[in-house]
Design a protein around this nucleic acid. Structure first.
Lengths: 345, 345
DNA sequence: AAGGATTGTGCAACCGTTTGCGGTAAATTT
DNA sequence: AAATTTACCGCAAACGGTTGCACAATCCTT
């Protein structure tokens, strides 16, 4: 009782007494076809609600209308925001989005990309895992003429366009803001050395200090491995118990900042009176913790949109050579955790 | 220089001097084919790394190996967790997952489902929007013989299998826990009346009170519209400023609980000493706020896995009639916000 | 009025695989 | 030795569109 037979071009042709090819052309208003024929066919198709068999079309044209997307982690505020943007733009242009995750494991990333490569996708959006270096599995896409766009976590080794946020600039702005609020001894809890974003943010931190001519010490820089709340807590403890405790901390991420704040609150430090805190990424949680956490918005949605636009452009013009880099600006979000002045009321 | 011509069955046949059909059958070890022929073909295919054109196969077989998934909101801890589970299970079984979101807008949901319906998906996983009631666009899937599985936010009106969590039981357990910890006047900040999950949780709340023989008042039940942090704050204010303030609050969601806690902290109430708080959903943030928030884990990952399993089973046996309901058990996560006793140390 | 240009349509190949059916040669049975 | 079975393999249609090309009919030249 299910699976009613679908209407095909052949059916229409038979019914209307014209050939399949004419029907096909009429439907797409080919100039060769007489207006009245076009109307005839279109009307019939409309009222019998004909829908073309995409499987057949795609097979013939050798493309799907799908694009793939792989992120290290799906359950992650920033990445899910990017995905949201990618879906939006893809759907706008008539494409569907296929999603997978690598869990930051190279093997899983290879598996996921292979699954998508074989004719189920016209192009790929990817934010690579920490373990990805060579990226042979990515090159396979290019070899098959399927464009790839990297976003956020990228590697320069792969000849594809890249969409990233200006981490260095964002970090600089964050630290500059702390300085302007009067914080003079600013520490940084950073991420792994081999992760580009982390290094960029650290660069931005150092630059801001240098420009302002403030003290800077290696012992004010702590390096997270997992970027966890606990690490934020532990490193803040180290910092505050050290000999020259800071009065401001710039954290690689909001989650780490949360840990930092937990330590400070537990130990009676007033935020921001005694210690100012800046996060990064502007996760939803930053606006609901107390004190509300200042952060740096990365415009993940926009990143998803831009990456997808780039990819679809390449798909449409069969271009697989482009390697431009788009750098998105961040936005400083000032909340309570860093505001000494009463600038807003 | 790209798009190297792909090897086809025809190529192999020509090269080996056998017919296309024999090659095809040899590759899948059809009993009609001689062992040596099989070996011959397989070896050739292997060393010239033949990969079948999935587009052609799918067209021929009229299926895609893709499944669709639609959620109200992608940037949402619970839903992204479900998606993560769905991807995991789908990939395990050789399927790709196509993801879309409705933003809780019916029109968007219809658009998304239509985009998937036309031959790009073999079945659908959906958590419906608040605006979805009839669900004609869902029925279209069934009419075409494509199975649908509903999860989390469901409607009984659609004849499909459903995977839900036992909200009532979870809520009951949460409130029961508050009671056991000694809280005697327990309020509830609930979600919209027309959302099933919200009503179930409210039921569970009422039941627990009744079983324990505690007071219950309509004025202890507040109804959120947007389920926001601010609503948690505002309703808690109302509750605490009312004539018979509660000493425990069960919130529909962790986010609301956060708002609740913010009001209490700002106004000098000790948590949990004076007021105990329970959230629901066990978002990541519940473990990083202070005091850490007790909550109810919904096992989103498992929900994604189960839903996908159900769907793939139906796809494989061409079954579109099944309507079983799977109810997942929740898990009480006790943290600081509700613990009066020192039961664990 | 004859030739060429224009307009509209159909034929048939094609995309790569799958599969029902028929056919041949060898092996087995009687 | 004839009849039947078995083991292999190929032909060709089919899936549902797309598209190059040929062709017929009509129109416009001169």
């Amino acid at each position: 009782m299910n699976e009613k037979k679908k209407l095909t071009l052949k059916d229409i042709g038979r019914e209307l007494g014209i050939s399949v090819s004419t029907v096909s052309r009429a439907l797409k208003e080919h100039p060769d076809i007489a207006q009245e024929t076009i109307k005839l066919v279109k009307d019939y198709a409309e009222s019998n609600n004909y829908v073309p068999n995409l499987l057949a079309v795609n097979f013939r044209k050798n493309r799907t209308f799908n694009i793939g997307l792989i992120v290290p982690e799906l359950v992650h505020h920033f990445f899910s925001t990017v995905i949201s943007g990618a879906i939006s733009e893809a759907n706008n242009q008539g494409y569907n989005l296929m999603v997978s995750q690598s869990n930051d494991i190279l093997k899983d990333e290879v598996l996921a990309s292979r699954a998508m490569l074989n004719s189920s996708v016209d192009g790929l959006l990817i934010s690579i895992s920490n373990e990805t270096h060579e990226g042979k599995h990515i090159l396979e896409f290019l070899e098959k003429g399927k464009p790839v766009v990297q976003f956020d976590k990228i590697t320069e080794k792969l000849p594809t366009p890249k969409v990233i946020v200006d981490d260095k600039d964002g970090a600089s702005a964050a630290v500059k803001h702390l300085i302007e609020e009067g914080f003079t001894k600013i520490a940084h809890i950073r991420g792994r050395e081999d992760v580009k974003n982390a290094s960029e943010r650290c660069e931005g931190y150092k630059n801001a200090l240098k420009v302002a001519g403030l003290e800077n010490h290696d012992y004010w820089i702590k390096t997270c491995i997992k970027i966890s709340e606990q690490e934020g807590y532990d490193f803040t403890k180290e910092l505050m118990e050290g000999e020259n405790p800071p009065n401001g901390i710039f954290c690689i991420t909001d989650l780490v900042a949360l840990g930092s704040m937990r330590y400070l609150k537990e130990n009676g430090y007033a935020i921001p009176k005694e210690v100012g805190i800046m996060g990064f990424s502007n996760w939803m949680l930053s606006s609901v913790v107390s004190p509300r956490l200042s952060s740096v918005e990365q415009h993940g949605f926009q990143m998803g949109v831009e990456s997808t636009k780039l990819l679809l452009e390449m798909i449409k013009k069969q271009d697989v050579e482009s390697i431009q880099t788009v750098e998105l600006k961040t936005e400083l979000i000032v909340r309570e955790s860093s505001r000494m002045s009463n600038s807003e009321m």
